[in-house]
Each structure stands twice: as C-alpha cells, then as structure tokens.
Nucleic acid binder design. Structure first.
Length: 462
RNA sequence: GGCCGGGUGGCAGAGUGGCUAUGCAGCGGACUGCAAAUCCGCGUACGUCGGUUCAAUUCCGGCCUCGGCCUCCA
C-alpha cells in the first residue's frame, strides 16, 4: 500500500513518492521560544512525530527538520517586560520545550536549526530576491513584492484583490502593494540586530524557514508541515520567497493540522481555558503516564479535523491506555520478541493520511484478541503486534506495572499496599470475607483497586 | 464579504453507494466467595429539503447550523 497524504496545495489526497527514492525530507515549523508550550503547540509536534515514525518504517532514510524561532518580536517584548536577557529566555524556553515534548514521547528531529544561527543565509536569500526583482528596500526595510510573482496565493487560494479587500491593518506607506511583506526590518539599539546591506536590522518572520529549509533540505523537498493557521500568510510567503529566490519548486506536499479548541471554545488566556503541556503533566499521577495520555488523546481525532481538548477526552485516553496495558499486563511474562510486527490494518490506517483514530481502533481489536488468546504462541503473536502498533503511534512504551503503579505525591506507598494485600490474602484463606472486603474497600478509598486473578492479586492506582 | 473545514447512535470518534467501525457509558449473561478485570450478547446513528440511482449516511444542489483563516497565533 502506498502512503497517501492530503496535500493542501492540491486539496486532495495524493500517493506519496519521495523526490529521491528511499530518502524523505520533512520540514515542520517549530516553536517561537518565549513561553511554555501550550497544548495547541503540542498538536503538530505529536502529529508529525507519528508521521516521522511512519516514514522511518517505510523509507530507509528520513531527514526531519524542525526549527527553533529564537528571534521574534514576542521574545523582544517578553524580555522588555521581564528584564530577563533575550538569550536567557530563548535558551530556557528551548530547554523546557524539549522536556515537554520528550514527556509526550516525541522523538527529537534530526536537525533543529535556530533562526539566529542562519541570519547570514537569510541575508543572502534576501539579496538574491532583490537581484531578481522580487524584493525592494525601502526606509530600512526590505519587502517582498507580491506583484512580482504570478501565482502568489496559490496555497491559500486567494487572489491579491481579495487580500487587499480583506486587509484589516493599516498598510505601511513604504509598501508598493498592500500585500507586500517584510523580509528585513530595522532594529533600534535596544533590539537584537545584525549588520546587513540595509543597515542594522533583524529578519522578518517568514524568511527564516525559507533559509533554514534550503540549508538543511535543499531547494526542493518532500514534506512541509505545520498548523492550519500557518497556511496564510506564513507558508504562502515561504513559498514565495523560496521559489523566487531558488528558481526551483519548494515543498512538494503541504500538510496542515487542524486548530485546537478547549471544551468547545477557542483557547485563550482571557477565557481561562489556556493550558500548557506542563500544567497537564503536573496534574497526572506521574509525568510518563500524563504524557502518554495526552499524546493518545491528541491522536484520537484525525489530525486534519479541529481538535476539541476536553477533560473527558483526556480521561477516555487514560481509560484506553488502562485497557491496553491491562491486556499487556496479563502477558507480561511472555516473550514476544520474535513477533514485533505492525499488522497490516494498523499500517494501512496510518498510510491513509495518518488515520490515527482508525489505527487506535485496531489497537483495541488487538487487545481483545490478546485477551482471548489461549495458546502461548497466540499470546506472543498478539502481544508483539500490539506493542509494535503502539510504538508506531508512540505509545505503550512503558512497563505495564509502572503504568498502573504510577504514584502521585502523597498517598499509600507500594509497600503499605502490598502489606494490606498480604493481610487480605490471609483473611481470604481463613474465609473471613468480611475482613477481606474491608481491606479492599479501605484500599479503594485510597485510590487503589484490587483484582483477584488466577495468579494472585494485582493492584493499580487511579 | 471572500476562502476553507465540519454537522454520525447517551458521549468521543472513524468510515462507506447496498455488508458490525472502535472505545466509553448503559442493559443482560459467563466467570468470581463477593467484586474488579476479562469474555459473550443487546441497543439498529448518520443536520435539513430536494436530485441522481435498483439502492445514499456515503454522490450532486439548495437551506439551516457550528468553527477557522483573511499580514506575523501551531
């Protein structure tokens, strides 16, 4: 089965073929590092992490580039407000971003370029654009001339007339066209700046991705991803810059994940429904369990759809993982190493435009099959299939015991629980069921549930 | 106003021109000292009005409705 992806450029699902057989280049817009990642930031990272994992199983060589935007007016503003130096803010925020995404079990990209390390390349690209008549300098700024590009607006499917009609901000007087956008802008002494042919200044927002994708993936590459909100203007402008400067096609397939809502409303600080990844991780029994549940919750809706983040959705994701880990816990002693293979239906679901909800439904079916499996061979086979499938989605990496025993601060220690279970076992042996039930109820009160099985009593928190 | 994406059973959420999505919740049964977990069974959903078709939730059109984007928010 071929990998099929929905390409925003053509608004259609297309069979994916790498430009160079066996080699895939993917660029995804990364964070602007001025604050903790919120759950909306996490969605593209998780979605494209699944794609990255899938690509790595399908192709021998994948180069995944995700940038760090460390020069930006929001960062400047943050520094001005807090007094913390810019470099300290970006360094600290980058570190926190890495921690949070690791907690969500997202693999690091192969290359993580920082904008400030590519200013020379940006300046070179801007010079090329000017030389080719696609950009002009005016009052210390350099602007891209949208009129110089015949099919500007192709990605977002809007004509320049529409954009002018819809413009809701004041058009700077030095712009030739209302739609012209900034490639370079002047910096005052208190702002970060680099020497350039147009004086000391800093890059506009879009040029960094054009410069960094060229540096790390070349002129034409396979996949470019990001949030749907970036279609216009960011990605439209990247296309304009790169195709005009390079004289070559840019990204071949454009992927965009849908917007994230919270409890049916747009997430915003003023509505009080603004969560960072860290907030949610801190609310979980432990970081690994929380991260895995957040990740599965995110993947329970197709990436292209709007995602409604809800407390109930997170609870359901946790319940799903409980079920899957329950199945795995039952076969903990069975070696499945020889059977670590992703079943065809799971692979087919993901190859069909990353249909993670369908893939998850197959995980459920695998768990049912595993629960029903009688022979050793059957159990090993289903266990291997479930684990391999989970790993492709980036879940089920934990030891089931660790999953169920994830302990929040406070509460009963493992040893205390074990002692109570031992006491209950004595009571049961003596057929003192009243006492046995009392102990079980007492544990449940503390959030510990018992399950009597053939091989003894197991327990879990939460 | 322009462009785009949705409206599926109590809930979440896939998908399909005729055949069970899946899970959670609910109900019944098996198992259990009782539970829990697990397994089995059940409940026959596709905004609305038309059209195409032997057949539409699935294609086409109108309408209603929700949401997003329209110069720097992933």
């Amino acid at each position: 089965m071929p990998l099929v992806l929905y390409n925003t450029l053509t608004r259609a699902k297309e069979a994916f073929e790498p430009l160079v057989p066996g080699h895939v280049g993917m660029y995804v817009c990364g964070p602007t590092v001025y604050d903790r990642a919120h759950i909306g930031n996490a969605r593209p990272v998780i979605v494209f992490d699944v794609l990255y994992r899938l690509l790595r199983t399908l192709y021998p060589s994948v180069r995944y580039v995700r940038n760090i935007t460390d020069v930006d007016d929001k960062i400047n503003q943050r520094a001005k407000d807090s007094g913390e130096p810019i470099a300290a803010i970006t360094e600290r925020t980058t570190r926190m971003f890495h921690e949070d995404m690791a907690a969500l079990n997202c693999l690091p990209p192969d290359v993580e370029p920082r904008a400030t390390a590519h200013v020379a390349q940006m300046i070179a690209m801007i010079e090329t654009l000017i030389a080719k008549g696609h950009a002009y300098a005016a009052e210390g700024h350099v602007l891209f001339a949208v009129a110089s590009m015949s099919d500007y607006g192709r990605l977002s499917r809007r004509s320049q007339d529409e954009m002018i009609a819809g413009a809701r901000v004041e058009v700077a007087p030095y712009k030739r066209d209302a739609g012209d956008f900034v490639l370079w802008k002047p910096s005052t002494d208190d702002l970060p700046g680099w020497d350039s042919p147009w004086g000391r200044g800093r890059p506009g927002w879009h040029i960094e991705c054009s410069a960094m994708s060229l540096q790390h993936l070349g002129q034409t590459f396979d996949i470019h991803g990001g949030g749907q909100d970036l279609v216009f203007p960011h990605h439209e402008n990247e296309i304009a810059q790169s195709t005009c400067a390079n004289g070559a096609p840019f990204a071949r397939v454009w992927l965009h994940n849908g917007w994230l809502m919270v409890e049916g409303e747009k997430m915003s600080k003023s509505l009080g429904n603004f969560f960072t990844v860290r907030d949610l991780l801190d609310q979980a029994a432990d970081e690994k369990q929380g991260g895995e549940a957040i990740r599965l919750a995110m993947l329970s809706t197709h990436y292209h759809q709007p995602f409604d983040w809800t407390a109930d959705g997170l609870r359901q994701a946790k319940a799903t993982l409980d079920r899957l880990y329950t199945a795995l816990r039952g076969v903990a002693g069975i070696d499945s190493n020889g059977y670590h293979q992703v079943p065809i239906d799971v692979l087919a679901a993901l190859e069909d435009d990353i249909n993670t909800p369908l893939a998850i439904s197959h995980l459920h079916e695998l768990a049912t099959a595993l629960n029903k499996a009688a022979g050793l061979e059957d159990k090993a086979r289903h266990k291997g299939a479930l684990l391999a499938s989970g790993h492709l989605l980036g879940v089920l990496f934990q030891d089931p015991e660790a999953w169920f025993k994830a302990a929040p601060a406070g509460g009963l220690a493992d040893a205390e629980i074990e002692a109570m279970i031992a006491a209950r076992a004595e009571a049961r042996k003596a057929r003192n069921f009243a006492e046995a039930d009392r102990i079980r109820a007492a544990l449940l009160e503390q959030g510990v549930a018992l399950e009597d099985g053939a091989g003894g009593t197991s327990w879990k928190r939460g």
